[in-house]
C-alpha cells in the first residue's frame, strides 16, 4: 500500500484527527487524518482510492476491534472524528461524482421514543463503512422517513426503539414505507426488538448490535 495511505489508515484507526490533536498520545505531533488526506490528494491519489484503501478499511478494523471488546466507544468515536476530518477533503469529489458512496442510510429513533445512543452508534459505524447518513434524530414519524426517502430514492432505512410501548410504532412506519416506497430495505434494532418482531412487522433485518447492521449493509451493497 502507498505510504501516505498506510499512514492515513493508521491515523483513522487510532483516532488521530490532525497534527495538533493530543489523542492518541503515541502519535503526538504526527500528521493526522486531515494532513494525510491533503497529502494524498496532492500526491495525485484518486479520492475513491483514498476512501476504499484507507478510510473504509480503517473503520472496518475499528468496528472489528469494538466487536471483539478490544476498544471502547470513545476510541471508536475518535476514529469517526478522524474519518470526518478526512471526508471533509473528499466531500467535493462526492458532489462531482468522482467518488461513489456505498449507498444512503436513513436512520431515526421512532415516534414517541427519545433514546438515541444506540441509533448514533449504528449511524457512526455505517458511515464508517462508506455510506451516506441521513439522521432523522429522535421521535421520528412515518412522514419524516417518507420525506427522507423521496429526497434519497433507494436509500436503506434503519429504525430504532428502546421501549415496549414505542417499538409498536415501528410497525406503522414500516407499513407506510412499504406502501409508499415499495422495495425499500428496512433494518430495525433496539433493546426490546427481536427477529420475530422484525418479521411480524414486515421489516427486512434485525441486528442486536451495530456490527450486524454494518455486515448486512455490506452484503446488500456488494
Amino acid at each position: 500500500m502507498n505510504y501516505i495511505l498506510s499512514k492515513l489508515l493508521e491515523a483513522v484507526e487510532y483516532g488521530k484527527v490532525d497534527q495538533g490533536s493530543p489523542y492518541p498520545p503515541n502519535l503526538k505531533g504526527m500528521d493526522g487524518a486531515h494532513e494525510l488526506t491533503q497529502k494524498a490528494l496532492d500526491a495525485g491519489i484518486m479520492p475513491q482510492e483514498i476512501l476504499e484503501t484507507a478510510l473504509i478499511p480503517a473503520m472496518g478494523n475499528v468496528g472489528r476491534k469494538f466487536s471483539e471488546n478490544k476498544i471502547f466507544v470513545p476510541q471508536m468515536l475518535m476514529s469517526a472524528r478522524a474519518m470526518g476530518a478526512s471526508m471533509a477533503h473528499l466531500k467535493p469529489f462526492f458532489a462531482s461524482g468522482k467518488i461513489k458512496a456505498r449507498g444512503t442510510f436513513v436512520i431515526g429513533t421512532v415516534k414517541g421514543d427519545l433514546h438515541d445512543i444506540g441509533k448514533n452508534l449504528v449511524a457512526m459505524m455505517v458511515e464508517g463503512a462508506g455510506w451516506t447518513i441521513v439522521d432523522l434524530g429522535v421521535d421520528a414519524d412515518a412522514e419524516s422517513f417518507l420525506e427522507a426517502l423521496s429526497n434519497n430514492p433507494g436509500a436503506v432505512v434503519g429504525l430504532s426503539a428502546l421501549l415496549t410501548t414505542t417499538m409498536i410504532n415501528m410497525g406503522e412506519i414500516v407499513e407506510k414505507i412499504k406502501e409508499n416506497a415499495p422495495g425499500t430495505v428496512i433494518l430495525v434494532g433496539g433493546a426490546p426488538v427481536s427477529t420475530d418482531f422484525c418479521r411480524k412487522i414486515g421489516a427486512d433485518f434485525y441486528s442486536p448490535d451495530p456490527r450486524g447492521a454494518v455486515e448486512f449493509l455490506k452484503q446488500l451493497a456488494s
Binding site: 415496549t164 410501548t165 417499538m167 409498536i168 410504532n169 426490546p192 418482531f197
Partner: peptide
C-alpha cells in the same frame, strides 16, 4: 411493572 408491547 409496565405494559406488554402495545399502543396507548
Amino acid at each position: 411493572f409496565t405494559l406488554p408491547v402495545m399502543s396507548i
